[in-house]
Amino acid sequence: MKTFKCAIIEDSNTQRKLLEQIIEKNKNLRLLHSSSASSESLAEVNALKIDFLFLDIEMPVMNGFEFLAGLTIHPQVIITSKEQKYALEAFEFNVTDFLLKPFSTARFDSAIGKAIDKIKSIKNKQPESKLVVKHNLKQVELNVHGILFVEALGDYVKVVTGERNYIILSTMNAFNKRLGSENFIRIHKSYIINLKMVERYNHEFIEIKNKKIPISRAKIVELDRLLNCID
């Protein structure tokens, strides 16, 4: 699973340390910033590529709603407050969840799960990208995002989707260029895969829909990096 980057904005040192400890124990989270709200911390958070923001409301220099209004990035925001009365206004800012202090680790994990689901939902709403190919002497439109993997077959390539396979006259290099998407990587001389379709992998093969696909040794490091950046 991808490692999600986080920031904490909280004026209480005790509460901030507690959140830091919870995040540190979660192997799927990485903390990049932790401070109270101020114009300086707002600028720092806006400069980060974070997935989650844990945000208190009542703070002395800048309150949580002022901080939210100043954001130029769009992380999943999880409010942490001891006052239930702020919940309605918080959700008007389209926050992901509202944690009432003191909250349990189970409640924290529930909020994280909700945030991850929202990130997945946003990524899955990507627009269709069409690729026109010739299959069985007919012009066919392929949805690029629906391709599972591509396999070399001599002078042809086999394009495997969730619905059917297509045999297309093309080299692997030429077809890889036509895909034109960062979600595809050639992991072996005979295979191009859609990173979003990978179900599991080790350093010998990846698995997509029960198909085990070998990985070239030269691609292991790149594959590790890419799969850590994609869900």
Rank of each mutant, 00 (worst) to 15 (best):
D224L: 15
I23W: 09
I119T: 13
L55P: 01
D56F: 03
I168D: 13
K17V: 10
Y86Q: 11
L53D: 03
H74M: 05
E92T: 03
V144W: 04
L19C: 09
L169R: 15
I187G: 10
K27M: 05
F149V: 07
A7V: 08
N194Y: 05
F52K: 05
N183D: 15
K118C: 05
L226K: 14
R186I: 10
L169W: 04
F93M: 07
K212A: 08
I8G: 05
L48F: 12
H135R: 00
M172H: 09
S104G: 08
E24W: 12
M1P: 01
T105D: 12
L148R: 02
R164S: 13
F184M: 08
L223M: 11
I167Y: 09
Q139F: 15
R225S: 14
V133Y: 05
N143F: 06
A69E: 14
I119N: 13
E83A: 04
E83K: 09
F93W: 15
N28M: 13
A174C: 01
A7I: 01
L18K: 13
Q139V: 08
K2W: 09
F67N: 03
L137N: 15
P75I: 00
L68N: 06
K125F: 04
S170L: 08
K17L: 14
A47D: 07
V140Q: 09
I23G: 03
P214Y: 02
M1L: 07
L137G: 04
L100D: 10
A69G: 02
A115P: 08
R16W: 04
S35A: 13
I192F: 01
G64W: 00
K118F: 13
L142F: 09
S129H: 12
V160K: 11
L18R: 12
T80K: 02
G154N: 09
D11A: 06
Q139Y: 10
N26V: 05
D109T: 03
V159Y: 08
I22R: 07
R107S: 12
L223Q: 13
N176H: 07
Y201F: 11
K134G: 06
Q126N: 08
T3A: 06
I22S: 01
G146A: 15
L100R: 07
G70W: 06
L71Y: 03
L18P: 00
Y201A: 03
S190R: 07
I187Y: 02
F175D: 06
